[in-house]
Computed example of a mutant assay.
Amino acid sequence: MTYTLPEPSCRRRWPWSRRTPGGRDAGIGILLFIVEAAVYLATGFGYGMEIWAAQGDEKRIDATRVAELAWVQHFLIATVVLAGLALLFRAPWTVLSQLLAAGVVAVLLTLAQHDYDRAHPAPAPAPNPAYVPCYSGSGRCN
């Protein structure tokens, strides 16, 4: 008696060839969202403690705020990359949670950048060397 082997499948089984099961997808999406929130809050607390420890040293505080802005930018990129991977693995609930997290991080980054820009306004431009102020009675007014 001879046994025949089944023919090998021509199609490879890639992780994205089938949709991720709904329960697993929702669980991973919720877990990633909670982990990202915890990481963001813990890192924000760490930067806040660094600012508190600076005790009024403006250079150290500014350096910490710039480092925090850079970290949030990288965190936003990582969140978008995770959303792309979830899209590749055909996990719609995970994609939705990651896009929600990316939106929240983008808003927080925009608010932090706006706060930093308001605290550090650009210097006023230097006046033109040919500019002559108009004094009352000087006769040089236009």
Rank of each mutant, 00 (worst) to 15 (best):
P127R: 07
M1C: 02
L85S: 10
P92Q: 00
A130T: 11
P127T: 06
R19M: 13
R140A: 10
P6T: 00
E7C: 01
E36A: 13
Q98D: 14
L32D: 04
P125M: 06
A38P: 08
A67W: 02
Y47F: 15
G46M: 04
D117N: 12
I34H: 07
V72L: 12
A86W: 00
A106Y: 02
H114D: 15
V39M: 11
G44C: 03
A102R: 03
A42Q: 08
L5D: 03
W16M: 11
Q113W: 15
A106S: 08
P133E: 11
L31S: 15
W16F: 09
H120S: 07
E36C: 06
L100W: 13
G84Q: 11
F45I: 14
Y3P: 07
A106F: 10
T64Q: 08
K59N: 15
R140S: 05
A122F: 10
K59C: 08
Y3L: 11
L85C: 11
W93R: 07
H74I: 10
Y116K: 00
D57A: 13
G48E: 04
A67K: 11
R13P: 05
A37E: 08
W93F: 11
Q98K: 09
G22W: 05
Y40D: 05
F75Y: 14
G139V: 04
V35H: 02
L32Q: 09
M49L: 15
A38W: 07
W71M: 02
L88T: 13
A78V: 10
A63V: 01
A67I: 06
A124M: 08
F33I: 04
H120A: 03
L88I: 07
P8M: 00
L96M: 12
A124D: 14
G27V: 02
C134Q: 09
A130Q: 12
C10E: 12
P127A: 13
L32G: 03
A54L: 00
C10R: 07
T64D: 14
A54W: 00
R90E: 12
R18G: 08
L69A: 01
A63L: 10
L31C: 12
F89Q: 02
S97E: 02
E68M: 01
V80A: 12
W71H: 02
G23F: 10
P92I: 03
A130L: 13
A63P: 01
T110W: 14
D25Q: 09
F33M: 13
L108N: 03
